[in-house]
Design a protein around this nucleic acid. Structure first.
Length: 296
DNA sequence: ATAGCGCCCTGGTGGC
DNA sequence: TGCCACCAGGGCGCTA
């Protein structure tokens, strides 16, 4: 089962998949099988407000997928406001996959998993399907210039793979905090997109114990951690993310980064660097994997 | 402001 | 074989 918890590399991989098929597709209808997924709209509202709209190029912020919706260009009259330009007000679907969410585009005739929660039928005979076993995933619908998006999105920290994420930015995020450095890495307001897997992997790569108070890291350690975060995320992204088990996603690709995991999910097995057994701790309420020899 | 914790939810696992 | 407690964990709301 577990296709791994979607973190930045997995969400970005999904974004790239959707970018290849979604732009230009018009929404013909919506099926909502679990209304709880919709955070700020009823199924009826979602259907009414998305019908006829056209997907633009998908974006991503942290672990949020941003799916722009434009009004169908040029169509029939009496639309409120200016309808001359393509710049007409639009909206966005904001999707968070949480742990087990999946977002795929499949032919409408293709059998769907029983965990399909919301499906948008498209004008080319396909469907954008949101499936989620644990039903933690969320969908917001936000009109441009309106409130109502997820609170966490607005408060998101810097994108770790963007140029803006410098060692100085990381140093500022950690400075003065007594919380474990791992807790700070998981705090999306400090750095966007890291989850349990890549926090553990980055801390291992940097040789830093996850329990260390964030503010106590030496400058050199912060620089190592900065480099480790970027390297681990970039590598995982290049591999299409991490997938556990032999999960085979319908349209999607199984990620390949699981082959490169150094500590995550490897409790009791030898550290790839020193051979000592990987320990499993509990830090910030999360299962945490660490080499007690290499990480100090 | 900050840190910590419980809650949400379901399938898989391990113990008896 | 069957049952059940327990675990996974991102974000959010609450508490101290």
């Amino acid at each position: 089962m577990c296709p791994a918890m979607p973190e930045l590399p997995e969400v970005e991989t999904v974004r790239r998949q959707l970018a290849a098929v979604l732009p230009g597709r018009r929404i013909a209808g919506v099926r909502v099988r679990l209304a709880r997924v919709l955070q700020n709209a009823s199924p009826e509202e979602l259907a009414r407000r998305t019908a006829g709209r056209v997907f633009g190029p998908p974006g991503r912020r942290g672990k949020y997928l941003l799916l722009p919706l434009f009004r169908a260009g040029g169509a029939s009259g009496s639309g409120p406001g200016a309808r001359a330009g393509a710049e007409e007000a639009g909206a966005r679907l904001i999707v968070h996959l949480r742990m087990t969410g999946r977002l795929t585009v499949e032919p409408a005739g293709e059998p769907e998993t029983p965990y399909t929660r919301v499906a948008f039928s498209l004008d080319d005979g396909q469907e954008l399907r949101f499936a989620d076993v644990r039903t933690f995933g969320t969908i917001h619908l936000v009109e441009d210039g309106q409130e109502g998006g997820p609170a966490g999105l607005a408060a998101l920290g810097p994108e770790p793979l963007a140029d803006e994420f410098t060692p100085e930015v990381l140093a500022a995020a950690l400075a003065g905090r007594r919380a474990p450095v791992k807790a700070v890495l998981l705090d999306q307001r400090r750095v966007a997109g890291l989850g349990n897997i890549y926090a553990d992997e980055a801390l291992f790569a940097a040789g830093i114990h996850p329990q260390r108070p964030a503010g106590g890291l030496a400058r050199a350690e912060v620089e190592r951690l900065h480099e480790a975060i970027r390297t681990v995320l970039a590598r995982a992204l290049a591999e299409g993310g991490t997938t556990f088990r032999d999960y085979v996603n319908g349209r999607g690709q199984p990620g390949g980064f699981q082959a490169y995991l150094q500590v995550y999910g490897r409790a009791g097995r030898p550290c790839p660097r020193c051979g000592a057994a990987i320990a499993r701790l509990r830090v910030a309420g999360r299962g945490t994997h660490v080499c007690l020899t290499c990480q100090t």
